[in-house]
Design a protein around this nucleic acid. Sequence first.
DNA 1: CGTCGCGTTGAACCTCATCAAGACAGGTGG
DNA 2: CCACCTGTCTTGATGAGGTTCAACGCGACG
Lengths: 255, 255
Amino acid sequence: MQSHFTPKTACSSCRLRDICMPTGLSASEMVLIDQLISTRLKLKRGEVLYQTGRPFKSLYVVRTGWFKTTVSLSDGREQVSGFYMGGELLGLDGIAQDQHTCTARALEDSEVCVLHVQAINTLSRDVHALQSHVQKLMSREIVHDHNHLFLLGNMRAESRVASFLLNLLTRLHLRGQSAAELSLRMTREEIGSYLSLTLETVSRMVSKMARDGVIAVDQRQVRVLRPDLLHRLAEHDASDRCQQPILPSQLLVAH
Amino acid sequence: MQSHFTPKTACSSCRLRDICMPTGLSASEMVLIDQLISTRLKLKRGEVLYQTGRPFKSLYVVRTGWFKTTVSLSDGREQVSGFYMGGELLGLDGIAQDQHTCTARALEDSEVCVLHVQAINTLSRDVHALQSHVQKLMSREIVHDHNHLFLLGNMRAESRVASFLLNLLTRLHLRGQSAAELSLRMTREEIGSYLSLTLETVSRMVSKMARDGVIAVDQRQVRVLRPDLLHRLAEHDASDRCQQPILPSQLLVAH
DNA sequence: CGTCGCGTTGAACCTCATCAAGACAGGTGG
DNA sequence: CCACCTGTCTTGATGAGGTTCAACGCGACG
């Protein structure tokens, strides 16, 4: 990115291609795929990409920036149902009833590729890899939800926060970024909403992990000092009555 | 069912057709659909339909009986991730990684239709309604999971149990059964596992609702006396600090 | 008739939500 | 430049809801 002129990249030459498109396409298939993206959209921080109840027309792939999805509760409150970063697909929830069941909002200035559903379905009939790719993405969403169900049902506050951090780190790592450093794009309240904790509890758990030397925190900047311990925290679930306290010897961090 | 000889029913004449197949198919399309079901399977209570880690080859539609799906936790315990009754589709979790991520087990003697994935995908290219139908089913699974996430994240024990009962009743009602009476096919422990509560808490909440005259309980037989109150219970979420106590006048049930 | 699985009920404890107060950073206006 | 404000985050004290542990009831089954 030496230049600040951004050419309208085709899928075939997009740096996120391997993350959001099926792999192993033939050249002729790739030509077809390149016609899939009709538009791009830029959104400023806080702007809405799609909203609950609106007709479902397209899927979206995050090019740059971050999004959150929220479900609106009957009483007007909102709960965060997911965070999305570069290369990730937004909007699958809408397929069931041909309308969106959650609202997607940009956490910072962002850009997305727009994929019209009709184009995808038409194209799937010729490019079989695309058909099974979309299925896999949906199924992946289901698996993700199952993991989250497990988290909400069985994990203590500290484990939830640890899992959350590890999850973000893994996804960033897949995109070539550091597996040890991360800058949170969301508030403690949004994290809490996603994990079904209060913002106070999230804050306490982050502070505790910092006190224990597992991570170092400066505002929204998080650095992992002891990945091993972070993983151990994330594995502890609600049935672990006899959690081993972290020993002083494990706390000594070389610097 | 006057006769105890069960003919091998084709999809086109199956009583569950509207529940598990796309509607509005042409006659020629229906002929194709009828070739989809390759086999049927009978399972005795407790038998496994598919298991975590096994290669994913087919989807299954419940013909008779009940199933539960469980995800296995690292420490060997299991958590119930869903219950399935007649007409409902099992196995969608397997698409993402071409292997099953949960285990399906019969809660009672049951029968399923087997749909080979390859057949579905091949057929989808000709019967477009089938393609979008499978998508819708997957998306519906996602929406269901979102509801369950909301339940786990935001609802009190009593509301969870009330929602659970209402959910079963609704699904049974769709199948032409009573909306007021229901026989649970699963143990309190399985319900608790699904709702992320202990079996004791489930038992206490059921007892409480019976004491309050909302339902009548005899073992696993549940009768709804006050649907209105049951709905009200299911709507209460964790943020309802000032729950109105149920008034004595509301408890008087005509008999 | 004893055993086993399942369900109920009670008492003590623990985690996390709630309420409250204050710290800190970034932005705005005087 | 400082004063002020607002949104975000931190930390402490208290209490409620649900888990845990334990005892017991009940029906099915060999």
